[in-house]
Amino acid sequence: MKREFVKTDNAKRFRAGVAMLEARGALEAGWMLVIGRPGEGKTTTLHNWAAEAGAVMLTAQEGWTPSRMLGELAEKLGIEPVRGFEKKIEETIAGEEIPIVLDEAAFALHNSAACLERLRGITDKSCTLMVMAAMEQDRPKFARRMQIASRISYVCDFHKSTLDDVGAACAQLGEVEIGPDLVERIHRDTDARMRLVMTAINRVEAVARRNGKPRIDAADVKGLALCEDFNRAIVRGGVRKGA
C-alpha cells in the first residue's frame, strides 16, 4: 500500500474552512470547530495542515488545568517555563502568527472552560487562528458557552466518508487494482471510517500479492474479515458474520 495522505471531501472542506477563516472580517472570531466520529480522519487532517502551517498543537486531557496547558504550550514553543513565560508565549504566538490546534477539545471545557478561556485571552490579542477537534456529542457543550461559541466562525463536520471517497482512497493507495464490488464491500464493512479503510486496503492487497493477482475483487476475499471494527464486534456480541 502506498503511504500518502488522501484528500477526502472532509479534508477539502476543512481546507476551505481554514481559507475562509484566514480572510475573516472580525479578527477575534478566528476559531474553528472540527466535529466527527472517531476514525474519520480528523487528527490526521489536522496534522497534515498543522505541519504545513507550523501550528502549535495541544491535546486536552482529563483533568487539564490552565497552568498545565501553558506548560505544554511553552514546551512546544521552546520557551523556558520561568517567571513571565506566559507573556513570552503570547508574544511568540502574536509575533510569529502561530495558529493553535486543540485536539480532544471537550476536555478543555471542564472547570467552566478555564483552559479555553485562557486560550481565548491569547487568540483575542494575537488574532491568530484556533482549530478545535471534538466528538459529535460535544457540540452542544460548546454552544452553551457563549463567549466561546461567538468566536467559532466555522464548524467543519467530518461526515461519514462517501463511496467515492473510499474508491478514491483505494485507487490512490492501492498498489493492486481493487474492483468496484470490493470497494463497495470495504465501504460497508468499515462503516466508511478512514482508519479502518486503510486496514482493509492493506489486507486485500496482501491477499492479491499472495495469489500473484494484479487485480482483486470481492469474490477473492469472500469470508475474509477486512477489518476489526470494535464497535460492530460489541454490537454483534463479538461474532462477525461472513461477507
Binding site: 500518502e4 495522505f5 484528500k7 496534522h47 505541519a51 504545513e52 507550523g54 512546544k76
Partner: peptide
C-alpha cells in the same frame, strides 16, 4: 520540515506514519 513537526507531535513513529499524513504523491 513538516516531518520534523510531526515527529515532535508523535514522538514514536515509522516512516510510513509520516508519509500517510504528509506525503501527497
Amino acid at each position: 520540515e513538516r516531518a520534523w513537526w510531526l515527529m515532535r507531535e508523535l514522538r514514536k513513529f515509522t516512516v510510513a506514519d509520516l508519509l500517510t499524513t504528509l506525503a501527497d504523491g
